[in-house]
Amino acid sequence: MHIIKNDKLLIWFSYIVIVLFSLVCLIPFIMVVSASLSNDQEVALHGFSLIPRNITFYTYEFLFASKGALLLKAYGITIFTVVVGTLFSLAVTVSYAYVAANSDLKYASVLSFVAWFTMVFSGGLLPWYILTTKYYSLHNNLWALFIPYAINVFNMFLMRNFFKGIPKELSESAKIDGAGHFRIYFSIMIPLAQVGIVTIALFYALSYWNDFFLSLMLITDRNLYPVQLLLYNMMSNISYLTSGGGGADAYAQGMSQVIVPTMTARMALTCITIGPVILVYPFAQRFFVKGITIGAVKG
């Protein structure tokens, strides 16, 4: 009896802790959304709050009217990187993982080692930066936003474990039927590894969407700023909102009295940045648990 009572206590405790942790993860997002919907002057007077103060879409209207062109361009750059970058990284990673999973081949363990070693030893930022900008000319061009992320070792191992989970008999019988390596790979293995491919595709897509490391390091041309870098620059430099970038002055002339919502504008921009992630997320989330469970890192 005593034990059962304690067990119940443990389960209730688990519920409570998980609910609390989930709230800690959730509340910050509610804060940002309500800040973006608040009246800027109210925020200046009373501070941020969980429930929007004087609900208004003024900040969004201001952003789209004065910075619309800039935002659209940045969105274009980001979407380009997400689409092209994800496809590129998938092609490189999945093929590498397939070969590394092929245990008949001695070379497969070499591939795994070569990838693994980069996880424990790295040359660091400085040589990487010099090589990338000076020698590979990945500087101020669209290539710079995805080429350096061709292969993510974590995703590669996830994918390799996926391929390892596919019964060998399938490819062996195909071999006996006269199928070549490419045929086995493209028409048998890739369709079988779909769940794994979708999982790492989502990982790649989200990391491209969120990345501002590459753009920070390799992009100085304003015309090539992706959304994240734009947000970063608006954070660090509020004058980015009020001047420059075109549009703001024209917008100011059109209105008798323009209030620049300095506090809420960042919040609105943040919401615009995470909006698409929230939209894809319910669909994507199913794959993360399933994908990681099947391909879980086993070294």
Partner: peptide, 26 residues
């Protein structure tokens, strides 16, 4: 198995360019 070697090549090149050459760059 040359097709397998070919399939692994892009990944190898990427690791070489962005991980191994920076090590040499030390």
């Amino acid at each position: 198995n040359w097709p397998l070697y070919v399939l692994s090549l892009p990944g190898l090149i990427a690791l070489l360019l962005f991980s191994y050459l920076p090590m040499a760059g030390l």
